[in-house]
Structure formats: structure tokens, C-alpha cells
Write a protein that binds this DNA or RNA. Structure first.
Lengths: 208, 208, 208, 208
DNA sequence: TATGAATGAGCTTTCATTCAT
DNA sequence: GATGAATGAAAGCTCATTCAT
């Protein structure tokens, strides 16, 4: 088999198993059994169990990062909301295509090692920063009432994480994803907005 | 030392170390070193490493459970809100007294084993049920607009978990806890309520 | 078994096998098989394969070190020679009691690792220094002709090492050790001395 | 590339690396990386890692062997000494041109395997035989006093080995090699000879 | 009760060697 | 001839658990 194909194949197997059993409970033996390769072959492609895990992690981080755009305030208020919904929806869509690593990123946070913890921390910090900047922007634009930006950003992040983690079956269907994104946004925006911003929004259809 | 006291002492040590290093990275050696007991003694009190972990977990679940009361709708609408705030605040207070296990419960979710996953699942399911029942009640009482109860319950749970996990320093101070609880509630309620329910609430003092 | 006894037992087994097969070809499996203990037991007593080897090495170095005394020049010339012979004989006697590590120290010099190489280097450097000091002293006292101290010290060390390495059966018998020590000394002294120092020495009896 | 040239190229790389890192620490990967060939190609030219090592060893043994000539006693006593000096000097010269394998031969003696040990043993045995024959000849010719031939041969071999191993920088310069050879010979001959044989020898210039 | 020496299955990793292309 | 992906035995080491004292 071509070197590149084999890499991808092993990465796919590893992703699946890490997602199901977590980092610690996944052994190299598990991976090579699933991939149908010999022990040595694994180390031909990856330096260590940790290395393949990191590679999967980085890959996901990059893709998530690409999903999230800073809100462009130069458009009208309605479009700002549209941009936010699009952001959330893109993240939902991405993670629906990689539920295995999603489980890892969302919930394997303790005890891996300092390197992993730092990397994860950094990743979430960046997302939080994006949310906080958006909130501050909203406050400046008088779209958002005065509030504790840090705590609200955390709440938003946490809400999204939990929905992603607990409801993976939603993620399969594009229409349902749109619905969920809108519902989340509605939940937060109605709470944050100084006046009713959703008046002009189309009614969400049959949330299941 | 009395059997009961020794149990408690070992449980305390274990809780501390599990909280700091996570389940996998904590070894029985770590625990007995900290507790100052012999290897064999550990197994005199606990069946296995897993068993002591489970015991700590159950203990915490019970205590959290005791914190959360179903909302009593027979009182007026304002008191319903007060009951919700009290619920959140009690959870905050509890977890502030046991940050170690908090870390575990909030973030060690993957890869321990099926038994652990099921137990955690059950625990969160119960909390979610409580939230959902409260939401449905609110809808019936026309305090809460029509919404997707399941997704919103998840969002609320996730938001609380994230704040708890990321902001442990808040948990130390009772006054700050009250502030945080109110800010969270305000965030959600303003979004959920059909009309402005917070009009009659006392203004929160200096949210930092 | 008592902790101390077991340590000694394992050290003895390890010494024997290291001596026979060398560091690299000796596996921990070899040692535990010989010692009749479980894999884990080995690591209960020693941090690593390297650690037990180092311990054996250090033990030997200390003992060799204790054998070698600087020559005391305040006595007469004849006694100086006697002191040298005694030094050589004591080293012979010591190594006869530990042939296994002798093989290691004398010939395992390449490729272990930097730490080992440095330790060995240091050890030989100390011996060479002792020899050089003795030679310089001899030159000052006009007992030894003017010569290249460094190269001659090396030659003496090398000669002793080779005899020790290749003729271990000599080392068993105390009388033969005395004979060998004297023969070595005679060889070198007759070459180093400006006049015939051995004229007054008793004739060596039946070198085998 | 011609088969013969490739063989030589790979042998050269292997010699260099074995010399630097020793047999065990040298991997086939090291060799093929240095030689710029593929894994399989290596095994096209050599049966195994062990086989290429043996080949290098044999090559060196043959060359050393060619350096050492039996002393021809039919010439006068002075020329006998000259022949000995020439022998030593040729060995020094040879090894100066191949320091890498020198390190191996002189110090990688334990733990390769029985085959290696036997081969090395045989090689040194031959050298020792040559020395012993020369000594016996000297004794017969009354040039050498009566002594234990076996032990003295060992001492001479050991002295030469040690100087070669520890002082490789000398080996670079032809003049220094001559000086060292003479110093060594002087050391031994003055000790071995019944009368002063060096009286007629040219004085060594500036031994450092 | 309490001890701590002993266990052994199982982990990650290495590397000389093979073989289909 | 040449390649390099694939192999798998064996290495060093960890750690939850047991049991004789």
C-alpha cells in the first residue's frame, strides 16, 4: 500500500478508537488490530502513541479554527446575527463529520499530560477570545446589554460544547443542524440583547 | 485508628490526588504514600482502585443530588425564580467545598470504562430531567416561551459546567457565588421569559 | 525473603550474567530467570537495568580504589618497591574474587553510553594519575631514569589489565598471585631503574 | 554503480559508524542512511549486520597480520631490535589509518557473541604466539634473561593495546609514531635484556 | 488489623530482516 | 539490481492486586 494511504488508514482507525475508548484506554495493540497491520508498521508511520494522538488533535483544531470567523460589524445588525448563526452551524457541521475526535476534545481534559492540557487550554482560550470580542463589539454597538463578558463567554462555550457532546445524532442532518444553531442563538441573543432582536427573524420550523 | 476514621482519611487523600492528576495518572502508590499506609492496608479498606474512585463519585453525586430541589410551582412566579437561583447557588457552594472531585466529574468522561460512563450519564440525565421538568413547568405557567426543552436544558447544563470548571476561584467566596448565580440566571431567564421577569429583581451589585 | 538479602541475591545473579554476556546481551529476563523472581520484583529493587549495572560498577570501583595506596617515599628504596608490589597484588587479589565484573570493567568500553564511558574514563584516569605520581617520585629520587611518564604509565596500566583479563585462573591462588605481581614488577622496574634495583630481591620461585 | 564499488562504499560507512558508536549502538538504519542506500539494498550486499561487522573485522585482522613479521635471528643482535621496533611501528601506522575499527578491536570484547569472542581470541592468540616465539628466541640467543614468557608476552600486548587505545592523536604523525615505538621498546628491552642493549641505539629526540 | 514483598499481565517501543514491486 | 513497506520477536518497564507474615 502507498505510504500516504496507509497513513490515512491508520489515522482513521486510531481516531475511531480514541474516540470510543479515550486516550488512556486505547492501546497501540488496539490500533494495529483494527488497522490490520503489524506492530512495527505502526511505528514506521508514527513516532509514538502520543504522536498519532497529537496529529489527530492538531488536525481537528485547525479545521475548527477555519470554521470560526470573527464577526464583521460593518454590515447591518441582522447580518451580524446571521454571521453568528453561520459560525455555530459550521462548527456543528464539522464536528458531525468527526464525532470521534469530538468526544476527545470535549471531554479528555484531565491527566493526559501538561503538553496536552496546555494545547487544549490554548485552543479553548482562542475560542473564548473570539466570543468575548464579539460580545464587546455588541455592547459597543448597543446590541448587547452591559454584562460580565467573561462569564457569559464561558456560558456560551459551555452550552455549545454540551450540546455537541450529548446530541451527536442531530449533527447528522443538515436541516436539524440549522435548527439547533438557531435555537441556541435565539436562547442567548434574547438574553443578551437590549431590545428584541429576533422580531424580524423567520420562525424556526418544528424543532423536534 | 478506628476503621471508620481510616477509611475517611484514605478517601480524603484519594480525592485530593484524583482531583489533581485524574483517574488514570493516579496510582495506588500515590494514594498510599499520601495516606501513609501500607499497600495491603489499602486493599483492606477498598476492593480496588476503581472501587475507591466509585465511592468518591457516589458520595459527590448524592450530595449534589441533595442540593437540587424540584421547583415548587404553588408559590408565585417571583419565588420560582428565587428557587432556581437557590438551586444554582447551592451547587456552586457544594462544589466549592470539593474542587478535586469537581474536576473529575466535569471532565473525566471518556475511557474509564462503560460502568463509569453509564454512572456519569445517569447522573447528568437526572439533572437534565430536573431542568427539563422546570422548563416545561415554566412553559405551562406561561413564564417561559415555547422552545425546544431538550436542547435548552443541555445548554443550561453545559453553561453551568463550564463556568464551574474554568472559574474555581469564584467558588471560594460566598458573595461572589451569589453574584455568579444571578448573572447566569439573568442570562438564561431574559432569553427564556416571554416578558421581562427581572424587572422586579434587585440589581446585582458590581459583577466583576 | 528479607529486603536486604534479596537485593544481594539479585545483585549476585546480575553480576554473574553481566560478566558472562556483557551489558547489552544481558536482558532483565536473564537476570530474573537466574534469580528466580518475577519481573516486577526486579524493579522493586532496582530502577532499571542500567541502575543495577551502575551499582555493581560503583561497588567495584570503590573496592579497587581502596586497594591502591600512594607510595610513601619516606621509607627506603627497597620498601618503595615492596609497596608497589603490594599494590599490584592487592588489585590481583580483589579481582580474583570478582571475575565477572572484572571482565566488564576491563573490556566493555564502547557504546554503552556517555555516562558509562565517562565513569570508566574517570576511574582509569585516577589509576593513571597514581602511577604517574609514583613514576615522577621515582625520577626525583633517582630511582627511575628520565622517561615519558605518560606513555609509560599507560603501558603499565595496559600490561596489568591484559594479564588480569586473560589469566583469571592465576588469580585463584594466593601464591601464584604473589609470583605474578613480582614478575610484572621485575619486568617494569628493570626497565625503569637507572641501576639494577633487583639485585637484592629474593629470586622468584617456579613461576608456572 | 559497480557492485564492487558499492560494497566498498557501504563497508566504509559501516566502519566509520561502528567505530564511533560500537557494534550494539549502530543500527542498520544508521548504515544505510550514511550510505544513502535503501534497506533492501543493504541485504543484497551483506547477509546481516553481523556479517558486515565480521567482514570489517577480518579485513583488519589480515592487515595487522601482514604488519607483523617474525624476527629473523640470522642477522646481528642490533638488527633484531630494529626488526622489533619496525614491527611495532608498522602496527601503529596501520591503526592510525583506521582508528574506527581500532576502537572496536581493542575494546568491544564482551557480549557480542561466542563467535566474535572466539575470533578475537584467536587473533590475539596469534599475536601472543609471535611475541612468545620472539621472546624464546631471545632467551636462546642470550639476549633476553630467563623469565615467564607467557606473562611477559601478555604484558607487552596489553601495554601496546592501551597506548594505541588512549593516545590516538599520536598516531597521526609519523615522527611521533617512531618516537613512541622506540620508547615502548626501550621500556621493555631494558627490562628484558641481560645486559644493556640500548647502548648502541640512537638517542630518542625530545620525547614530550 | 497491618504490612510490604511478590506477582505477572500488559504496556510502549525497537530493530534486524524479508519480500513484493 | 534496487526499493522501502511490512514484519514480529523481544526488549525494558509499570502497576493493580495478592498473600504470607
Amino acid at each position: 500500500m502507498k505510504r500516504k494511504d496507509r497513513r490515512i488508514q491508520v489515522l482513521d482507525c486510531a481516531r475511531r478508537i480514541f474516540g470510543r475508548k479515550g486516550y488512556h484506554s486505547t492501546s497501540v495493540s488496539d490500533i494495529i488490530r483494527e488497522a490490520g497491520i503489524a506492530r512495527g508498521t505502526f511505528y514506521l508511520y508514527f513516532d509514538s502513541k502520543r504522536a498519532i494522538f497529537d496529529e489527530l488533535l492538531d488536525e481537528l483544531f485547525v479545521r475548527i479554527d477555519e470554521c470560526i470567523n470573527r464577526v464583521d460589524p460593518s454590515v447591518g445588525p441582522g447580518d451580524v446575527i446571521g454571521q453568528l448563526i453561520d459560525n455555530v452551524e459550521r462548527v456543528f457541521a464539522l464536528l458531525s463529520s468527526d464525532r470521534d475526535m469530538t468526544r476527545i476534545v470535549l471531554h479528555e481534559a484531565v491527566g493526559l499530560d501538561q503538553g496536552f492540557d496546555r494545547k487544549l487550554e490554548e485552543f479553548y482560550r482562542k475560542i473564548l477570545d473570539t466570543i468575548e470580542v464579539s460580545l464587546n463589539l455588541g455592547i459597543e454597538m448597543n446590541l448587547v446589554r452591559n454584562l460580565d463578558v467573561r462569564i457569559v463567554a464561558l456560558a456560551i462555550l459551555g452550552a455549545i460544547k454540551e450540546v455537541l457532546y450529548r446530541q451527536p445524532e442531530w449533527l447528522a442532518d443538515a436541516k436539524a443542524r440549522r435548527t439547533a444553531s438557531e435555537e441556541m442563538l435565539r436562547l442567548f441573543l434574547s438574553g443578551l440583547a437590549e431590545q428584541e432582536l429576533f422580531s424580524g427573524m423567520p420562525e424556526v420550523s418544528d424543532t423536534p
